[in-house]
Design a protein around this nucleic acid. Structure first.
Length: 648
DNA sequence: AGCACGCCGACT
DNA sequence: GTCGGCGTGCTC
């Protein structure tokens, strides 16, 4: 207990679970002038025998620690990079997910860049005024911004043109309009979008509306210097628009007024790094902490969002006049001959090509993603690893979709035939076929690897894999959604909502009144698409999942790793906290996985006990029987809440 | 992650 | 009686 020395309580930047709490250090007298809450410091870890990076969380006069305090090693910088509100959110998010706060902080605070920091400290913040724009297309009664309200907002499924003449999604314009209202109040807004190209759209929408000095882009794809500069700009109080990917929800913003999350159903919002917290969940935590507004903006309502609406936590908001794409369904039963493109769709494409580009959405990239034996129809597999073979481009030999090995002299294991049958069509083959069917028309391909952002307003066939559709200036004259049946065949709990989302996002790229044709899919999913009623579809889906006790009706947590550790962990949890256990089942890496299903109310308690299990496991785990040799010990213990890719 | 501490077997 | 192996726990 020291009364006169100043004490710094710090969080250590380390993924070690046992270090995930505050440590007290004495502040050396010369440092006391400059140190501040949020500063980066270096601290000695005596029994660790090293110096660690840390952030100052609190400065006090006394410590409740019984031992003798060590002195801070050094003050890295006087810039308070870990804002108090970001610390609170990081702590809460980590607790909810049984993870370490420092893992969340690593998403929130970019690496330091000394030159950028010096320049920033010298720079004078610019003064700028912004004229608030009304939120066009929506009733402004009640107003949705500044109320701290939680809103499930249906986007207007159209394109629009900025005053600069750039074509963007109308949703991006709406987000930009909301942002101007926040800026006019001198406050901040975070706009989190899944994709880099989505960020570009919002920036394009903002360009004619606000000075660029008030806009910060935070994304890991940016050069480190730019990103750090944008981050530092967010630390200053005052108006600012923060645009970024999933981790933008952790951006510093002391005067945060609203968070807009675009297309919360997109998988890119799911954080792949520990503690694996989805941007939607992080935004919910932050909304609770700061009282800001939270707007989930999308063309299709996610099932998770629907649940939030049904429990009364979110208000649903739809545009005033319900503009919606003109969708036509082609009955799968009526083209008995499995024609991939029915004649009605051909006709629509042909006439649409007279006025502009036509979008063709396909399921998979490549030429023939799946090939089989011509004679016996056995699927062709890789000699080396057993993965499925596919053909990337016309005329090329097949190669393995898993390991990439070429299979130039393929021969069927079953019957010895060497001729391959092309089972599925990829974007490259569709492109080739369409080129033949529409001679003289240019055919453009856009897929995951070779992605186009925009295509001109000239007639052209634009073949794109789902999610990689370019924006056409003035919109597409027609949109053909092929391969719907193939997309639906994928085994995943979320497949129906995913398809609806892919189709809807593509449909929103059509010009006003242009035909949108969904090929080969019927049933209530197709109807929901045609009538643009994704909220009702999400409600049905949620009710199905309630019946089956699937997420998001219940929550899940997967416990994976070493079989003994998983078993001990699950056995150590109070059975009253969960409904049931699925598994353990074997994983390809040699470990096992068990999944617990539990009710929302049990979340905090369950996270606490799982956290305790992780800490215990991390300290107990020691060098196993064989440390060398090719054998890699299976991962010890991993906890993952609310995994989106649950294969059950 | 490293490092100290301590409990037990082997050796001077 | 004492050295040192490594299993266990802690790091302000």
């Amino acid at each position: 207990m020291t009364a006169t020395v100043r004490v710094a309580r710090v969080i250590i930047d380390s993924p070690v679970p046992a270090l995930d709490h505050l440590f007290d250090y004495a502040v050396p007298a010369p440092m006391a002038e400059d140190i501040d809450v949020g500063c980066r410091v270096r601290v000695p870890l005596r029994s660790g025998g090293r110096i660690a990076d840390a952030y100052v969380i609190e400065l006090t006069e006394s410590s409740s620690f019984d031992g003798e305090l060590s002195l801070l090693d050094s003050l890295v910088s006087t810039v308070p990079v870990l804002a108090p509100e970001v610390w609170r959110v990081a702590r809460a998010v980590a607790d909810r997910a049984a993870g370490s706060a420092s893992d969340v902080i690593r998403l929130a605070v970019p690496k330091r860049h000394v030159r950028v920091e010096k320049a920033w400290l010298d720079a004078q913040p610019a003064d700028a005024t912004v004229i608030p724009q009304p939120l066009a297309g929506y009733s402004d009664d009640p107003p949705i911004v500044a109320a701290g309200e939680r809103v499930a907002m249906a986007a207007i499924p159209q394109l629009c043109m900025t005053s600069d003449g750039a074509t963007i999604g109308r949703w991006a314009q709406s987000a930009a309009e909301l942002a101007t209202q926040v800026l006019a109040q001198g406050r901040k807004i975070i706009i989190s979008v899944p994709d880099y190209r989505d960020q570009d759209q919002v920036l394009t929408a903002l360009t004619p509306l606000v000075p660029t000095s008030l806009v910060s882009r935070l994304d890991a794809k940016q050069p480190a210097a730019q990103r750090y500069r944008a981050f530092l700009d967010c630390l200053r109080p005052g108006p600012r628009i923060i645009i970024g990917n999933r981790s933008a929800v952790y951006a510093p913003a002391s005067d945060l007024d609203a968070i807009v999350l675009w297309d919360d159903g997109d998988d890119l919002h799911a954080e792949p790094l520990a503690p694996y917290v989805h941007a939607r969940d992080a935004a919910l935590v932050r909304q609770q902490d700061s009282g800001c507004a939270l707007i989930l903006l999308s063309h299709t309502r996610s099932v998770e969002c629907q649940r939030l609406v049904e429990i009364g936590w979110f208000r649903a908001l739809a545009p005033e006049r319900h503009a919606q794409p003109r969708v036509t369904l082609t009955d799968p039963a009526s083209n008995g001959d499995a024609a991939r493109i029915p004649s009605s769709a051909w006709k629509a494409a042909r006439s649409a090509l007279e006025s502009g580009p036509v979008l063709i959405q396909v399921a998979r990239p490549g030429y023939a993603p799946v090939v089989a034996c011509q004679r016996c129809r056995t699927g062709a597999r890789c000699r080396a690893c057993g993965g499925a073979l596919g053909i990337q481009q016309s005329g090329q030999p097949p190669h393995c979709s898993l390991c990439g090995a070429l299979a130039a002299d393929w021969q069927c294991d079953e019957c010895g035939d060497t001729r391959l049958r092309l089972v599925t069509r990829g974007s490259a083959r569709t492109t080739e076929e369409l080129g033949r069917a529409f001679p003289g028309t240019s055919v453009i391909t856009s897929d995951g690897d070779h992605r186009l952002e925009r295509v001109p307003a000239r007639p052209a066939l634009v073949v794109a894999t789902r999610g990689a559709e370019p924006i056409a200036e003035n919109g597409y004259s027609a949109v053909l959604l092929l391969d719907g049946d193939r997309m639906l065949a994928r085994e995943a709990l979320t497949i129906a909502s995913d398809c609806l989302r892919w189709w809807s996002n593509a449909a929103a790229l059509a010009a006003n009144g242009a035909p949108v044709i969904l090929v080969g899919v019927g049933g209530r999913l197709a109807t929901a698409f045609a009538t643009w009623t994704s909220a009702a579809f999400a409600a049905e889906e949620l009710s199905d999942r309630r019946e089956l006790s699937f997420p998001p009706a219940v929550r899940t947590v997967s416990v994976s790793g070493n079989a003994a550790a998983v078993e001990a962990t699950v056995a150590g949890i109070d059975a009253a906290l969960y409904r049931d256990v699925l598994g353990p089942s074997e994983l390809p890496d040699g470990g096992v996985r068990s999944i617990l299903r539990f009710d929302y109310a049990a979340g905090p308690e369950l996270a606490r006990s799982l956290r305790a299990a992780i800490v215990a496991n991390a300290t107990k785990r020691r060098r196993g029987p064989s440390a060398k040799g090719g054998y890699r010990p299976p991962p010890t213990l991993r906890i993952r809440f609310d995994e989106t890719e649950l294969v059950t």
